[in-house]
Design a protein around this nucleic acid. Sequence first.
RNA 1: GGCGGCAUAGCCAAGUGGCUAAGGCAACGGUCUGCAAAACCGUUAUUCACCGGUUCGAAUCCGGUUGCCGCCUCCA
Length: 493
Amino acid sequence: MALRVYNTLTRQKEAFQPIEPGKIGIYACGITVYDLCHIGHARSAIVFDVISKYLQYLGFEVTFIKNFTDVDDKIIDRAHAEGCDIKGITEKYIEAHNRDMDALGVARPTIAPRATENIEGMIRLITTLFEKGLAYDADGDVYYAVEKFKGYGKLSGRNLEDMLAGARVDINEKKRNPMDFALWKASKEGEPWWDSPWGKGRPGWHIECSVMSQRYLGDTFDIHGGGEDLIFPHHENEIAQSEGATGKPLARYWLHNGFVRVNSEKMSKSLGNFSTIQDMLLSYHPEVLRLFVLQSHYRSPVDFSEGSLRDARTGMDRFYTALKTMKDTLASHGGAINEGKDPLTEEHRQVFEKIMTLPERFAEAMEDDFNTAKAIGHLYDAVRILNSFMAEWKNKPASETVYVLVRSREILLRTGAVLGLFLDDPDHYFDADRNREVRKKGLNVEEIEGLVEARRLARAQKDWKKADEIRQALVEKRVSLKDTSDRTVWKIE
RNA sequence: GGCGGCAUAGCCAAGUGGCUAAGGCAACGGUCUGCAAAACCGUUAUUCACCGGUUCGAAUCCGGUUGCCGCCUCCA
């Protein structure tokens, strides 16, 4: 294994070495729970899910921590707007988030801690920062004195002078340096608060991650991840807090995923150009979303559009068509597996050997900074080889054929599973896809099936003209037909 | 203004010094099919935004130009 990862801290790919052999700790910044998750959140979640799954596939025991920020200005605003307390908001959106992630096939983290469950730890950490001379109290607000931390700016690649030059920070007379950031905020009227040595208040945004990562993963852990917008200020500030307190590096490798864009602009709440995961799942199979995300490298920006999702759907259909053909071929030949006792024919052996190289090529792509796009290219290669093989052999049952298909399918499914793909049953995949499309386009299933049956009768009587007219009528409803030896299946384009 | 990233075929997208520039979508031709669809076979970038440089050799390294994007404020 020669895993190499791009480390934002050093701006280059590095050989990956876990701190403790066989074990890996990952901390990924979660979301602030005040609204539904959109495709951008989905990308980040899918990327780190795949990283975690791949590391487990390599045999590592992975501890994956992803937090919920459940106290913050936006949550408070939302609670005021809806006339409830913050828990009324956070519970609702944590639940929605979990539903979305489950639907996307994103594994639940080992632990999903919440900021509000870690207030004591934050107070302890802030106290330590006071002791180190890195924090100061200003009328109940507590700030971090960035000038006192010599490494400030090392992650984002800038220094304090650069930051001040273009600073767009609020003028705040309480701060000694405009770049100082809040560790603790005095609560205003109507805001949630906790008691602290500095009065009633609530935590600043960054302190929670320093506390929770240390609590569950220790002073120094392997991988810290998040969207690239978190590099500054959030992750920079986490480093200042954690390393300022412990004197040890916070994380060995910093991984950041690129954004989802819409018309070349960042997808975000503030621009209002977002699509929620919930909405997308009404129109597409979750694995289509995963394929869409994983077809680009995780650090590149990816442009979201209806067209690019349709393309991903077509690609996913290609995979499931192959899996369906394999399933049907095996079902029709049930049982007779040649367990390698009889020698394979030359053609069988050649196909089998090509498929056997898939895990190796897959690993080669993945260990180069998780190159899922390349890995998917290898999956398509395997599918083409298998389709070709089946086209040649499916009507000539042979125990070697069954053997090759059974083993090949295992390999395909095992590698696909690392990406969270091919987990559905092919028949279920196509049924669900058809149901989604029918609902979306408001089509009438009985009417379609009636036409399909009418065409079947016409074909049985070799009335090709009538059969083609019916098919043309269906095509106008975007229904496409596929005649197999015993029946006709239809799908929506 | 400061810092950083990107530019590869009609579209999406791998590739970061050296075999014929992955793969997907789309298109076209062929096989199969009553005809289609799916599948398979074949075709589609002598060229990697542009200009210059380094090198025996560059899409890949260096300098410049143009265009796009991100961060510097909450943000995955």
